[in-house]
Amino acid sequence: MDLLDIQNIKKYFKQPWGINYALDGVDMSIKEKATTALVGESGCGKTTLAKTILGFYRPDSGKILFKGEDITDVKTNNKLVRENIQIVFQNPFLSFNPRYTAFATLYEAVRAMNNISKKEVRGFLVESLNSVGLGEEFFFRYPHQMSGGELQRLSIARALINKPKIVILDEPTSSLDISTAVNILKLLAKLQQEALLSYFFISHNLKLVKRIAHYVFVMYYGKIVEYGLKEQIYGFPRHPYTKLLLDACEYKMKDYPASGSKHKQGCVFREICPHSKDICGNEPEKTEIEPNHFVFCHFV
């Protein structure tokens, strides 16, 4: 059994100019003690999925199971979700209450779960700061007194402080400089080994994901188009969109028409796909081309 099971999640947003199929039947699973990456361009529903898992959105249909327990409606299983699933956001400067020091931020996080006094908790918080590579001198700093990298470390400390099982990393490095991003990725890998965490890593950059992921899911406009082990996705990408993304990371892709799939039926990628034929109007079958490697395409 997987740690987190996402079954056929659908979430549509009604907007003045039509329906936005943010999540259109997403099936995913997050394995224990591994990193599952979700890759796709902005607007494809990655963050919506993260927020749905955390219960900020209620899906229109589908189920989310944590260790077999239904957490689709957060209200019924609030404690379970809050204790076990945490999130690190993309923009470190928006992830903190500007009026809280690092200490207050972490204390607030601890206090949400336990009932400890400020004095008792101090040592614990120091430990938590140190574990993400921040010294005690950061304790009484406000967010605006810290750099993006430092804030992102603090964000990780906050997410990990109540010892969750799953951490959702929503593009945690994309607003950072490369050297800082590498350090954050190293830190995440170290913490994963120490605390046996499962990561759900969301990114638009396949190249970045290569370093940290074990499983990779490629998403395009609300649908998963291909998934498998890291080696399979990078070694033998089968879906045209995955290939295109890999090209884009190397800056090889020259032209890419503006997208935004309006079709509900059939392959979401067919407007852009170079191999598009009439058959693509039908919903593509899920094909297992090698163990663990699945592709949603008519031409595999």
Binding site: E41, S42, N205, K207, L245, A248, M253, K254, D255
Partner: peptide, 11 residues
């Protein structure tokens, strides 16, 4: 911007 658009802008 996304990598897809980035790549296109490079060209």
């Amino acid at each position: 911007l996304d990598v897809t658009i980035e790549s296109q802008l490079v060209h």
